[in-house]
Design a protein around this nucleic acid. Structure first.
Lengths: 239, 239
DNA sequence: AACTGTTTCAAACAACTGTTTCAATTCTAC
DNA sequence: GTAGAATTGAAACAGTTGTTTGAAACAGTT
């Protein structure tokens, strides 16, 4: 075989375990025993646990963002000079992700759940790595959105993109977190329905009317946070 | 005086460190040395690290949800039998959270960022604890939304609530994650503007037209995920 | 056959984890 | 002041972590 089969077994096992227990809680011993390889194999093939994590993201994430960029390029080619429809841009960015997230057979589902959670990972090196890996795709989509929505201030678009990423992250993080909301577990439907749900929600948010205080700090009263008493730093702790 | 000051110092230090490095990566030794107390104090006052985490959430989260429920009850009281406006319901739920999240002085900001991330925490005991702590508030707001939006299927509301939580989580997780998007760091503005931005986005998403395939599986073509080739499980790994 | 570089294996390494122990100290009430 | 409780302190505990080691097994070439 061209590439050691041990590498693949380690990567697959690590992906599943990281997804289930997080990075720090997943030990090399659990990974290697789940992959049925020797403990030292990880350091032999990848150098360290951190390098394993990076490699794990690389093999999926670069592919994902290439797909996104290709979809965007396709849109721009067939639109010529005309501005793109915002819905098409969102489809290019989030459609690929959701497709990957609902590919339960190939392990994409596992990975996308992991990715969604990792976005807010505290670990510095993971965040830096993600930023680097995402930079090109995000920049391209940002400018596409700015061009497609000439009436929306640039900062507003960035924030809404940020919000959309949060919604998607929760969407693909699956029913695990959702069951906190719905007392009774919801039927986990196939990807098509989830995608339609997410897409209409995102589009509604993206096309929402601008907040009245977005550009200028007028004295509009709408949508200012309701006044609440200060949060207690000392709550009744014992009885 | 009534309650040991050591407890408070531990809780405050732990909150900040958990926020910055996560639960597993934060050791008791770092917590106690940051709080300038003895290592054994954690186990003496709280019993275990897990119990410390629970207590840390309890002192903020119960207060937060009480505020939410009080705001909702106020709305229902002044509306009588009339259905509530969805925007008011969202304000009651998310307004309190954002207010707490932008209270940088009292430590609420730190806590809310921690909470947003914890929502998708893999650790089982944290998730179970959160579900228990949230159950009442979420149930009340769910039924309020269902009553306020009689034309929207119940499942659709749950999912949109889920999406909204994701957007809020990213909103309060702050510019750390946002800077991955905006190459140049955005000006971190005060809470009022962030709240207005989030609120318009959420309302736009909540009031979006229903996905065409929501209730019945008609053969609508809109919003089905674009076809993409299968994600590679084996990517070019070496060269 | 013998020699090559690569991969696997069991064992050990030092460092760090949450938790206990028990004496020393401080606080509280009589 | 003194007895008794509550709290702190330094040190040690047993267990786990990522990583390293050096010998053994394997592959391919001449």
């Amino acid at each position: 075989m061209s590439e050691s089969d041990t590498r693949q077994r380690i990567l697959d096992a690590a992906e599943a375990l990281f997804m289930e227990h997080g990075f720090e809680a997943t030990t090399l011993r659990r990974i290697t025993s789940s992959a049925k390889v020797n403990l030292a194999a990880v350091n032999y093939h990848f150098g360290s646990k951190d390098a394993l994590i990076k490699e794990l993201f690389r093999r999926r994430l670069t592919w994902l963002n290439e797909q996104r960029l290709a979809a965007l390029a396709r849109l721009e080619a067939e639109a010529g000079d005309a501005p793109l429809k915002p819905s098409r841009i969102l489809e290019a960015f989030f459609g690929v992700a959701v497709t990957m997230a609902t590919d339960s057979a190939g392990g994409g589902q596992t990975f996308m759940r992991l990715l969604g959670r990792t976005y807010t990972e505290p670990s510095a090196f993971v965040r830096n790595f993600l930023a680097e890996e995402y930079s090109e795709a995000v920049a391209r989509f940002k400018t596409a959105l700015v061009k497609a929505l000439p009436d929306v201030p640039r900062e507003e678009i960035y924030w809404r993109f940020h919000f959309m990423l949060g919604a998607m992250s929760y969407a693909i993080s699956g029913a695990d977190a959702l069951n906190i909301i719905a007392g009774t577990p919801l039927a986990e439907d196939d990807g098509g329905l989830l995608y339609a749900r997410l897409m209409t929600f995102l589009l509604g948010g993206l096309r929402a009317p601008l907040p009245s205080t977005a550009a200028t700090n007028s004295k509009a009263t709408t949508h200012s946070p309701p006044r609440t008493p200060r949060a207690p730093r000392t709550a009744s702790s014992k009885s």
